[in-house]
Simulated assay, not measured.
Amino acid sequence: MGEARDDPAGAGLVGFGGAAVVPLDELPRTASPAACFFGVDSDISRRFGENSDGAATFVRHWSARMQPWTRRHRPRATDVGVLSGAAGDLVRSVSEVASTVFAAGYVPVVVGGDHTVSYPVAVTAAKRHEDLTYVYLDAHLDLGFHLDDSDDVHNGNFVAALVRSGAFREIVNVGARAWTTHDDVYGDDGPVTLVRDVDPAALSALRGRKVHVSLDVDVFDPVYVPNTGSREPFGASPEQVRHVMSWIADHCTVVSADVSEVLPDPAHRATAEIAMRCVHELVKERQKQ
């Protein structure tokens, strides 16, 4: 796995959101959960949106300046590198890295390209944690009901594959607003619980649950995050998403997470820090109960 080259303070390598970089095979065990980031630099299975190869390295590079904040507020956050390669190999590699991170006592957080990257880490989490709820902030439902039937799992239908797995207590979308969510096939009796408002007040049913949280950055309004592959108008502000993440951290047990659908574009490098600040709110450190 690669290493970050960012070093704004001259104090060593800097990882995602300013986290310390540690080789995976040297990751120390921890008794109280902390975030362990790793990246995926190749799209796994994209059907919709623009190619986002290199997204993990982009986010890593442009969020490095968070290091002073991270050192103070998330001192045990760790980064174990960036994966790249063939799509089939990446699915297996993501699962293996997540398993290693889980075994060491950390909360794995994968930063990837297309949203399919969420699938292997969420499935791995569900194998380790019974009664897990999958929560995804996303402008789209990613169920693929409006598409032609296909056995291939991709970024437009992978949530349907999670539903079919039967591994989750509930699958909850926060912030869906794309035209596909208003198709007749996406009714109120569908397999996903819809929370239209990106607002902690709408999440009370999640209180006390174990959750995997997935952040597709197209949940943000394009005014704030234009560099994502499937932009939708009338989205959330960074502050709204940050409040939701903070509420989940305070009222749920976050066992794993992911970030996806960032297009590498130096003209809009603030996206990297917006995404990582929101995720760092989600992975607040606390003593193990």
Rank of each mutant, 00 (worst) to 15 (best):
G2M: 10
G2T: 13
R5S: 15
D6S: 14
P8D: 00
A11Q: 14
V21M: 12
V21Q: 04
V22L: 09
P23K: 13
D25C: 05
D25G: 08
L27F: 11
R29C: 08
R29L: 14
T30Q: 04
A31H: 14
A34I: 02
A34S: 11
F38P: 15
F38H: 03
D41L: 01
D41T: 04
D43E: 11
D43P: 03
S45N: 07
G49W: 12
E50R: 06
T57W: 02
F58H: 09
R60D: 08
W62G: 09
A64V: 02
P68T: 14
T70L: 12
R71T: 08
R72M: 03
P75H: 10
R76T: 02
R76S: 05
A77D: 02
A77H: 08
T78Y: 10
G85K: 04
A86M: 14
A87M: 08
A87E: 14
G88F: 09
V91W: 04
R92V: 12
R92K: 06
V94T: 09
S95L: 07
V97P: 14
A98D: 02
S99L: 13
A103N: 09
A104D: 03
Y106A: 02
Y106F: 01
V109I: 03
V111F: 09
G113E: 04
H115P: 08
S118C: 10
V123Y: 01
V123A: 04
A126Q: 00
K127F: 12
K127N: 07
H129Y: 00
L137K: 10
D142T: 12
L143K: 06
D152N: 07
V153S: 07
N157Y: 03
E170M: 08
E170D: 00
V172Y: 03
G175A: 00
R177D: 01
T180P: 05
H182I: 15
H182C: 13
D183L: 10
V185S: 05
V185D: 05
Y186F: 15
G187T: 15
D188F: 11
D188N: 13
D188E: 15
G190L: 07
V192S: 10
V192A: 10
T193C: 14
V195G: 01
V195C: 06
D197C: 10
P200Y: 14
A202W: 02
A202D: 07
A202S: 14
L203H: 09
S204A: 03
R209V: 01
V211H: 02
V211P: 02
H212D: 00
D216K: 10
V217I: 15
D218Y: 06
V219L: 07
F220A: 02
V223M: 09
P226V: 09
P226N: 01
T228K: 01
T228M: 09
A236T: 12
P238V: 13
R242A: 11
V244L: 05
W247F: 03
C252Y: 02
A257F: 04
A257W: 00
S260W: 03
V262T: 05
P264H: 04
P264V: 09
P266V: 13
A267W: 08
R269D: 08
A270N: 13
A270P: 01
T271N: 00
A272I: 13
A272D: 05
A275S: 11
V279W: 05
V283H: 04
K284W: 02
E285V: 00
Q287R: 10
Q287K: 09
Q287W: 06
K288W: 04
